[in-house]
């Protein structure tokens, strides 16, 4: 997921977090797909940032939204200097395991979200329930 300024929002992007107004009122639920008119409405409501799924906007090296599966693959590159070092190999394997578990959770969450979309229920809820599956 990636937090982006509303000016960079495009139709087709999907919300990774609900849009909440100051004061706590949810305006748009997590998982909703943006359209031009929805973006215009958010702009009118003076919402300046939203969090969307994936990493659609290249903002210069910010790795905050990178998928865990991709991180896992990077481990061998990041630790390439320490292949002979027993301790660092242990650290690497432990970190790879962490990212693996996270990647699995992320994938499960993604699937849950996709199956939610096929249901006709447009109210969507607050999105809090799906957040918990990540923990």
């Amino acid at each position: 997921m990636q937090k982006i300024p509303i000016d960079l929002a495009r139709s087709g992007m999907k919300l990774a977090r609900p849009v909440v107004k100051e004061g706590g009122m949810t305006i748009m639920a997590e998982g909703m797909e943006l359209t031009d008119s929805l973006i215009a409405r958010l702009q009118n409501m003076k919402i300046d940032r939203i969090t969307v799924q994936g990493h659609p906007v290249e903002m210069g090296g910010a790795g905050a939204g990178t998928k865990y599966a991709e991180r896992m693959e990077r481990m061998s590159v990041l630790f390439r200097r320490y292949g002979e070092d027993k301790w660092m190999v242990r650290v690497r394997d432990r970190m790879a395991q962490y990212f693996k578990i996270k990647a699995a959770a992320q994938e499960a969450r993604q699937k849950a979200m996709e199956s939610m979309e096929t249901e006709p229920d447009e109210h969507g809820g607050s999105g809090e329930n799906t957040m918990e599956t990540e923990a």
Partner: peptide, 19 residues
């Protein structure tokens, strides 16, 4: 932070983690 590759420290690898 290097592990997460958040930003760029000038390296594309981790530093040695001192136990």
């Amino acid at each position: 932070v290097r592990l997460f590759e958040f930003g760029n420290s000038g390296d594309d690898q981790t530093a040695y983690l001192r136990p």
